[in-house]
Design a protein around this nucleic acid. Structure first.
Lengths: 206, 206, 206, 206
DNA sequence: TATGAATGAGGCTTCATTCAT
DNA sequence: TATGAATGAAGCCTCATTCAT
């Protein structure tokens, strides 16, 4: 069945292009990134890229969707583990720190899309933001079911948790803090959030 | 002394160009914005812009610096008023909401620069971020002097406060929440922060 | 002998490609026509077309030759019937009207080639023009043998007859006249030509 | 008043570009013609051409309109002179021969547009065809007023006259006849047409 | 000082053609 | 023989920047 092999090859090439594209887009942004250079770095011909993506914009969106999947999977993985809310919030924080560091290209591209001016990209990036909020909301509801906390508006609170986590890391990176430094803040930030939520049983009081 | 008058005229024109540039840059981003169109909207010749700014990039940076000054002034103004920490944090929050709404062009441009990929712009935008942190740190230290709170690392905490505030607003806007909705969150967010900080006297307990 | 069957198959495929090519070339012209699309419409692979034709240009020329054969056969058929010159000129006119209508793709392609700018194509198209003139010259000579007319320069006159017939139809089509309208002009145009030739016995005087 | 000088300069440049464009379009056709080469031949920068014409297509159309004006003026001039119908038809014929020879670029471009496949161009070229027919129809009506001829459908007859004249010349050129040869056919073709029209007083009978 | 016509580098995209399977 | 994925030359067009006026 060469069909399946071909299909696998095609998908592999697609992923490869997306990977190279992410590097270029992260380095230069959408407009300054050069399709020809992406093709060259991917080791394929200029025209070949158009066999996989309709145009530059679609390549960017495909890359964005791929990044979103990857990042969401990482976050879901971090929150999947059992533990009390404090632990899970720490995991969330650490997962974001890791993403920002290890997938910094993706992270940058994603943030650019989210807070940048291109509406088409923002729409796509926003989907991931919603997914993040949903995942965190679910964690909060579980904590609530276990009487760890009591909150009125779960979604807004989830947004607050996400914002704090993400933006804290982003700002810290912009200000030049090391990954080491950042990770050390995990417990503290989780405490901050828990206390902010008025957790019924605050960890350090146990 | 026509020299001074000329100098005033020149500065006025400069500000005018920056103002029009901000609109275009906010609308389209750095790359998609068109220098010729900015000149046209500013009512000056295409070449004239280069008598005020070396090139497109310098125009963008000049605009960024202007925005930074304006925004920082707004934030300083909000925090200048007397009151307890809760009140001041609410003011900080409200000031950001207003900025995001009333100076949305500037706000967008600034966020793009901060989280975007162009290093030159990020460097400039980061300066504002540092200034923000410094202002908030000062407020926190005052509150500490008044025994309202006790915190170890003032700078990190200030960053946390800023991150939460700014990112919360940014995310809420991306998710489509109205200014009304946002403003209603001021008290709640301030409480969240205060509790997170482990404030010695939590407002609702009074 | 599978050899012959193969040869027939090959020729059939060739004709099929030419047929589809004619539609595309007629619709879009040589440059805008897309080889890949022609292959697709012909139900064969992109590469296969190059097993039958050296390149796009040769495909176009082959198509042109095929069209020329078809059209010349139609004209010969129209003029083969017995009758006086008036009748035969009417038949000639009607044959062109039919060609322009029923084989409009071919007709368009042919006219484009003849009056277009590509020298290679014009050369090929000119061959058909010469054949047309030759066929009409023969008819004129027969009429002369029957004392229907007397003309000095048979070739030039034949060219005149062809020009008038063909161009009249072409112009009428360009101006949007219907096939019905055009066909009604057959007798009149034939008379016009005959009178123009100074026919010894003009039909309407009989 | 630099405005007028500038306006004249601008128009001169425009005409110059059109002139160079006509050569390239006549030589290679619309698709094969190269905008960059046209600019180079016109002695201007690549981008400059777009200050005068929106895009390649508009340049082609502008050129077509210019050609149409020029050709129609030539034809009108030829028919403006007094004289009987025979003389005027000869002048028409000679005018077309001259156009085909002296303005062969324009003539080719025009014919390509008229009989080619690009609809947009055909529409524009058709306008000239209508103008031609109108001018000839006017001449025929004058002749009719002078009792030189009697015709029922002036427009159709005018189309016939135009078709014969134009196509005869076109075909003769395609077949390689010299301008000398062609011009010698003027009287003969005019007679052919007059007789075809059933002129009341045929020249050779006088 | 102010202008805007002119420039040309640069980039996305198309598509005829090739070639490994 | 048939295929279609891959190629890369080629070209239209944009726009930041220059410079003569």
């Amino acid at each position: 069945m060469p069909k399946i092999v071909d299909e696998q090859m095609r998908e592999a090439t697609r992923q490869h292009i997306i990977h190279e594209a992410a590097q270029e887009f992260a380095r230069l942004g959408f407009d300054q990134a050069n399709i020809n250079l992406i093709a060259e770095k991917a080791g394929i011909g200029k025209g070949t890229i158009y066999l996989y993506f309709e145009n530059k914009r679609e390549l960017f969106l495909a890359m964005l969707r791929f990044i979103a999947q990857t990042q969401l999977a990482a976050i879901r993985g971090a929150l999947a583990q059992n533990g009390d809310l404090q632990t899970r919030l720490e995991q969330l924080f650490l997962a974001f720190v890791r993403l920002a560091e290890e997938e910094s290209d993706s992270f940058n591209v994603y943030m650019s899309a989210l807070y940048g001016v291109n509406r088409a990209f923002r729409t796509e990036a926003t989907k991931l933001l919603r997914d993040y909020v949903a995942v965190i909301a679910m964690v909060l509801e579980e904590a609530q079911a276990h009487n760890e906390i009591h909150i009125d508006d779960v979604d807004t609170t989830a947004l607050m948790v996400l914002s704090l986590t993400e933006s804290f890391i982003l700002s810290a990176r912009v200000l030049g803090q090391s990954q080491q430094n950042l990770m050390a803040q995990a417990t503290r930030t989780a405490q901050f959030i828990l206390q902010g939520l008025g957790a019924t049983r605050q960890p350090e009081e146990v």
